[in-house]
Amino acid sequence: MAEDERPHLVVFTGSGISAESGIQTFRASDGLWADHPIEEVATPEAWRRNPARVLQFYNLRREQVRRARPNAAHRALAALERQGFRVSIITQNIDDLHERAGSRHVLHLHGEILKARSTVDGRMQYPLPRGGIELGDICDKGSQLRPDVVWFGESVPHFGEACEIVTEADLLLVVGTSLAVMPAASLLEHAPLDAPSVLVDPEAEVLAPPGVTRISQPAGRGVPALVRHWQREGRLWVPQTLLG
């Protein structure tokens, strides 16, 4: 079967999927920002005020990501791709858990923590297989390196590409996101009218917009259950037994 004829699953993931791998979420009361106000560590203003503090915060986060391991949801999506489905993943997460699970088509809307980038030329990126970024670490143009992440108040450079991917979906699967961060949350508006949208999240009944099917389960249980049905049937559909 030609690639364009294969079922195309577009997956939009948020911090909830990574939380099951031990990476703190952004917005929970005990989450990542509880002891670190956003304005102090994740804005351009914070970088200008105290770059050393920002670098220390992201160095700690980077070590957390390196210790984490892909969970059942990451692995199920990668297995579906290996079986022959077209799987495109758009993630708000800056970790590499999708890639480590085996997914090959991953678009990071908010950057990648295991990369550094130049402060004068965002195209100049450097992998960080170990260690972190310190004051004095510079790019090839002589400017300080910063985390390759999108801070609050910055534009999302890959948003247009993400919208294009969503327009090609046969089914849009949203996993572990509050749908509260713009512009990423507006991606659902770009799905084809005949493409079902499904939200897998423990709070799906509260979070899902009208017209979105709700599966109120953690990612590590709800996503593998869906994938098993799709692998068995060879098509993308939502079994009634998983709803609610």
Results as ranks from 00 to 15, higher is better:
residue 4 D to F: 05
residue 9 L to V: 00
residue 15 S to K: 04
residue 20 E to Q: 06
residue 22 G to M: 09
residue 22 G to N: 04
residue 27 R to H: 04
residue 33 W to G: 07
residue 38 I to W: 04
residue 40 E to I: 12
residue 42 A to K: 04
residue 44 P to L: 00
residue 44 P to M: 00
residue 45 E to L: 07
residue 45 E to H: 15
residue 48 R to H: 13
residue 48 R to I: 01
residue 50 N to Y: 03
residue 51 P to S: 00
residue 54 V to G: 05
residue 57 F to P: 00
residue 60 L to C: 02
residue 66 R to Q: 06
residue 67 R to F: 00
residue 68 A to E: 09
residue 70 P to W: 04
residue 75 R to G: 08
residue 88 S to H: 04
residue 92 Q to M: 05
residue 101 A to I: 05
residue 106 V to G: 13
residue 109 L to I: 12
residue 114 L to V: 01
residue 116 A to M: 06
residue 124 M to T: 01
residue 134 E to S: 11
residue 135 L to Y: 05
residue 136 G to C: 02
residue 136 G to Q: 10
residue 141 K to P: 15
residue 143 S to L: 04
residue 150 V to A: 11
residue 159 F to H: 11
residue 162 A to C: 08
residue 163 C to W: 10
residue 166 V to I: 08
residue 171 L to C: 09
residue 180 A to L: 02
residue 181 V to C: 07
residue 182 M to W: 13
residue 184 A to T: 04
residue 184 A to K: 02
residue 185 A to W: 09
residue 186 S to L: 13
residue 187 L to R: 07
residue 189 E to M: 06
residue 193 L to A: 14
residue 196 P to C: 15
residue 198 V to N: 13
residue 211 G to M: 14
residue 214 R to K: 13
residue 218 P to L: 12
residue 219 A to P: 06
residue 221 R to Y: 06
residue 223 V to H: 15
residue 227 V to M: 14
residue 228 R to F: 05
residue 233 E to L: 12
residue 234 G to C: 07
residue 236 L to Q: 09
residue 241 T to N: 09
